[in-house]
Amino acid sequence: MKLTLKIWRQKSAQTAGAFVSYPVEANEHMSFLEMLDVLNESLVEKREEPVAFDHDCREGICGTCDLVINGRPHGPLPGTTTCQLHMRHFKDGETITIEPYRAKAFPVVKDLVVDRSAFDRVIQAGGFISVNTGQAPDGNAIPIEKDIAAQSFDAAACIGCGACVAACPNGSAMLFTSAKVSHLALLPQGKVEHNRRVINMVHQMDKEGFGFCSNIKACEVECPKEISTVNIARMNREYYSAMIGSTEK
């Protein structure tokens, strides 16, 4: 299949970017990133700089890949990361637009690569259970209801890709943050410090420049792991009840 790619090229955060068009020949068995590999190899052959994009596992689990394809983070398929998207979902002759995430808290590094370390700092603010190595009781000491464990898992499945932020017109990180809050708060081990956790994580989120949530729910639609906005509701509840009981300002 013959395609035209309209790709955002930007040398660095300090310089302005622009779309550049490239023709590329692909076949429908290729993954989207393999198609970009083909383009890049042809660019290298022509002694041009290849398009920089982030990727690693190519199995939909590491959360590194992060393209906005035809206006949608991770492209058109529901529940699918860019690396798991295959070319059979595109048509011969199509023009495909590829750009980086655009969000204040994720500055562009180069071309399609952005800096998502703000997410790490949100986790560092409280996305953990305070237990030192060696302090743990037996794994079966506290039984956990299968359904509760499953709900916690559903939230823990977040891969930290940032598509939720990119999808949100406000650039909000509520889905990501609430997934972590839910993962831990649902478990007996995580309940202990959940007030502190939710307050600190929400405050860090604001500090990083992520926007507010106005219930648009685009995040849920674009999330490759289908994390539910129920988590946002849960986090809001947790946050307000924690703030009422909190002595922190």
């Binding site: 190595t133 060696g134 743990a136 299968k146 464990a149 499953a150 898992f153 478990l187 081990q189």
Partner: peptide
């Protein structure tokens, strides 16, 4: 065996039986 204990304490949602055990 200690690894499993440690991971459970950190909140790793391992698969569980209906009785709530691992």
């Amino acid at each position: 065996a200690d690894i499993i204990d440690q991971c459970v304490a950190q909140g790793v949602p391992f698969a569980r039986e209906y009785g709530g055990l691992l």
